[in-house]
Design a protein around this nucleic acid. Structure first.
Lengths: 113, 113
DNA sequence: TGGATTATCAACCGATTGGTTGATCAACTG
DNA sequence: CAGTTGATCAACCAATCGGTTGATAATCCA
């Protein structure tokens, strides 16, 4: 599932945009689980959940192993970290920019008095 | 644009899933800009960019002010922070879980020897 | 072997998305 | 005032999305 980092961000953010998939992530953060286990709490078909899981897998947010007929899902913290990293870069940039604007305003105020 | 926090996450993550909108975010992190300024680098129509901006505004990631006929856009760092907060919660949970699994494995290994 | 369990594939459907063109609105400027 | 500029609205289109049902594959178990 190799992708450019741009496509990684596309698919990972898109994956998180769905509340069902976010609930799956939340569940998997507490430990691996199979499709049936993951599907159980939802009022939709197992096929629909299976599709959601494939979306998560393709985005790199989860990985899957084989255990006989089961395919347990595991959350990948590194993939999550890549997202916070992108967001934080820009958040910090804008916050820095705000702070330097504050400094300018403070300086002007000082000159007034 | 009041929404439940669930819908906030839906729309904010969906907003970040598009590379054009992420580029707009990146641009706005370096300071406010108008629609025309934002649209200039893109090979799509100004109307399309205007739609992207409306998506970003609805998601709460940006806010807009009035300056005569211009509508400058401003990036909201708090909205970004809400996203990293959600992601980090689950990332930390799964990392904690990994560490405790490691501990169990180490304990087993010790018993072996 | 044959039946249950786990999971996916395939085809389809309605809604949403990202883009277009053309018209319109609102505010500045001569 | 008329013309230009900044931005949006409206209608449309192809592609994607989230869901369904039904069939199929693969593994386990008795």
């Amino acid at each position: 599932m190799k992708q450019g980092s741009e496509e990684q961000l596309n698919s990972a953010f898109a994956a998180l945009a769905d509340p069902v998939r976010r609930a799956l992530i939340a569940r998997l953060s507490r430990g691996p689980a199979t499709v049936n286990e993951l599907a159980e709490p939802f009022p939709i078909t197992k096929q629909a959940v299976s599709k959601h899981i494939q979306v998560l897998e393709q985005s790199g947010l989860i990985t899957r192993t084989r255990e006989g007929q089961r395919r347990p899902c595991h959350l990948d913290p590194a993939a999550l970290e890549a997202l916070t990293s992108w967001i934080d870069t820009h958040r910090l940039t804008v916050e820095r920019q705000f702070r330097s604007l504050d400094t300018v305003l403070d300086t002007l105020k000082e000159k007034e008095s």
